[in-house]
Every structure is written in C-alpha cells, then in structure tokens.
Amino acid sequence: MVRPLVSLLTALTMTRVAAADPIEMAAGPERNKDHTVTKIMRGPFMTSRLFSMPTADVIGAYMLSLSGDGSLLQQTGLLTSAGVLAIGFGDLAQLEYRHSAAISITGVNAPLPGVGVQVKIPIPEYANVPVFGVAFRLGVPRTETFGGTDVIEQVTDLYIVGRWRFTRFDWLTLHGGTRISSAAISLGGDRDVDKVKKTLYLPTAGYDIRMNPSARIVGEVALAPQFHWMPGTEEQPSIGYGLLGRLGVRWAIVPSVIIDGSIGYQLEVANAAPPSGADAVLQWDIRLGAEVFVPWGALACRAAGMFCD
C-alpha cells in the first residue's frame, strides 16, 4: 500500500524540474536599479489567461496587466468587448477587474463585468504534474434596456482550473477546470419581475501549442451562462447554457505586448435543440485583442529606487 506512494514520491523528487516555458520561467523582470528600461521591458512576463479562461498562473508581484479584446462581426453595429485589469498581489495572487464570458438575451457573447481575485495554489511544481489555481469573480450588474424594460444580468464565478505540462511534449500545455457560476437576471423599468437565480456548473478546457518562441496557437471550449427573455412578451426570464469555443493565436509581438486573434463559435445548448448548428458560420465571429504587461515595480525601482529586490 505504501510502496506505490513511495515510488510516486521518489519519481516526483527525481523529476523535480519545472516544465515551464522559457518565457514564463519567472513572473516579471528583476527589480534592479541598474537595469535599463529596455532590459526591464524584455520581461519575462507570465500571462494568467487563455482567451477568456483563467489559467493556474498569476502575473506576479509588482506587475500590472491590461487586456482587451473585441468582436468585429458578431452583430451588426455592436462591437462587443471584454477587458481585464489585473494587478499582481504577491507572487501567488492577483486582483482583477474583468469581463467574464456570458451570453446576453440578444444572443450575443456580451461579457459581464466582475471584480475578483485569482490565486495560484502554492504547491511545488513538478514535471508532468498539474498545478492548480482558483479564481473568484464577484459579478457587477449589467443593465440592458429594451423599450421601457430594463434587463439586469449578473454573474458571480468561482473558477477551479489546472494547468498541465509534459516533458515529452514540451510544446503542449493543457488547461481545464470548472466554473461554478451563480447567475441572476431580473427585469425592471416597466416590468417588475423577481430576480431569477441559477447556479451553473460549467466545464471549461483549453490548450496552447507553442509554435515558436513568440507565438502559440490557443484553443478553448467552455460552457457559459446564457440568459433568455423575449422583449415585449410576458415570458419569464430564464438562464441556460451556451457553448463558446475559440481558436486563435497569442503572439508576443514584443515580450510585454501580446496580440490576440481568434475565431469564435457560439452554440446555444439551453433547454432545447440549438436553433442553428455549427454549420451556421454566419454566427461565428473574429475577435482581436491585446494584453500589455506593465512591470511597475521594476520601473519604479529603476526610476526612484523603490520596490527593488
């Protein structure tokens, strides 16, 4: 009974080599007064997300990350967008304001705002053993108005995610987890309908393939809360599931700036057969975005001698 456990621990000890990406060996550049700005901006930097899914990593201490992306074509006249502002809080956590994926009653992937904290579970990292992280996002209500009716949507999330790298396939990283989502929708204005709440368990998975030192092909598939209500009817609002998928590239054009580009797919799977299948490519969209890292600690050290290592 004990022998397999001992073998496992021995194997883990023998292979205690972090299978980390070369550009992600450390979160943030060194905070050294002698470093030039050019050297500081060369990183290394660590991202804490795929496209919309958080990963088990954090951006690191004395770091700030600004992200944004937008859909070009999802709906005429509407440029949906999502953004993240994350600030490193020590080596294991980050505070963030972000827009979480959700599908509004118009059927559009219109992310909902939230504030939260993301934590990397502080366990040693071994080769071929996954690491885990937890992210909590407190939803901020978003109001849409249809005629005289206000539709208030809100989602609060708890993510439990893992990241798995392999020494044999060092170009591949797998990500997976569950999003426990507490969604609520209510009507106001000329309608007064009690808040409808639902707790959803939403699996999420993704991968990234390192194609070259600066670019990765990234794919992710996730279920997301989908709100239903038909404006102008007496129908009660409801909450269901929607499937979102993205495939694209994350390209570090320079170490501190990552350009995102992806094609996305959205399928309604709530309560009934989807009205349009995957062949309805008119419903797909193209998203472009970017993530910018600001090593404010290292810059402050360089400029004023503060926050140095």
Partner: peptide, 8 residues
C-alpha cells in the same frame, strides 16, 4: 501576419 501562425 501574426506570429507566423496566423493572419488577419
């Protein structure tokens, strides 16, 4: 071209 693996 984006990162040798994509283009927009």
């Amino acid at each position: 071209g984006l990162g040798d693996v994509a283009e927009f």
